[in-house]
Amino acid sequence: MQRLKTRPQFQATLAGETVARTAHFALHRLVLQAQDVARPPEGASLRHPRPLFGVQDVWLGAMVPKRWARRAVTRNAIKRQIFAVAALNATRLPPAAHVVRLRSAFDRRQFVSARSEALCQAVRAELLQLFERSSRKALPEAALAGSAAP
């Protein structure tokens, strides 16, 4: 699994479709095209732009905005959970670029500590649900493609 690192990679992936949502998270997916992963020719100059994604693989990025998680400790804990749960589900993800985006705040009255065990468990449970929903959505497409083949 590769990690998204540049702003253009995140922007391109966010422009793709939203494949799953939960109460706090959204999963965006961009199916990689040939020009996204093509290697530039030897001695390439500015005439040949570099591809966004170097290899055809599962790419993952995490967006946890300050707007929804004010403390850095909380943002880092959520990002760690995103990458850990994605690693568990890496075999079920298709080779594409994915971004997990925090889209609403966790209730500070319920999770008083910036990085409590209860918060980590709630985040993990919701991320497992998010990846389960995304794999269920991908299964019918794969089943249809498989049934169309002779």
Rank of each mutant, 00 (worst) to 15 (best):
M1D: 13
M1S: 10
M1G: 12
R3Q: 10
R3G: 08
L4I: 11
L4Y: 08
K5S: 12
K5L: 10
T6F: 03
T6I: 04
R7H: 10
P8S: 04
F10C: 04
Q11T: 02
A12T: 01
T13M: 06
T13A: 02
L14C: 02
L14P: 02
A15E: 14
G16Q: 06
G16W: 12
E17W: 13
T18S: 11
V19G: 11
A20S: 11
R21C: 03
R21Q: 10
H24C: 06
H24M: 11
H24R: 15
F25R: 13
F25L: 12
A26T: 10
A26Q: 10
H28I: 04
R29T: 08
V31L: 15
V31K: 13
L32Y: 12
L32M: 06
Q33G: 03
A34Y: 00
A34F: 00
Q35S: 15
D36L: 09
A38W: 07
A38S: 13
A38M: 09
R39W: 13
R39Y: 10
R39L: 05
R39F: 07
R39D: 03
P40M: 07
P40G: 00
P40T: 07
P41V: 05
P41F: 06
P41A: 09
E42L: 05
E42T: 00
A44C: 08
S45A: 06
L46P: 10
R47F: 05
R47W: 07
H48Q: 12
H48S: 02
R50M: 09
P51G: 11
P51F: 13
L52N: 05
L52K: 03
G54V: 11
V55K: 15
Q56L: 14
Q56M: 13
D57N: 14
D57P: 05
V58G: 05
W59M: 07
L60C: 04
L60F: 11
M63Q: 06
M63V: 14
M63S: 10
V64T: 01
P65L: 06
R67P: 00
R67F: 11
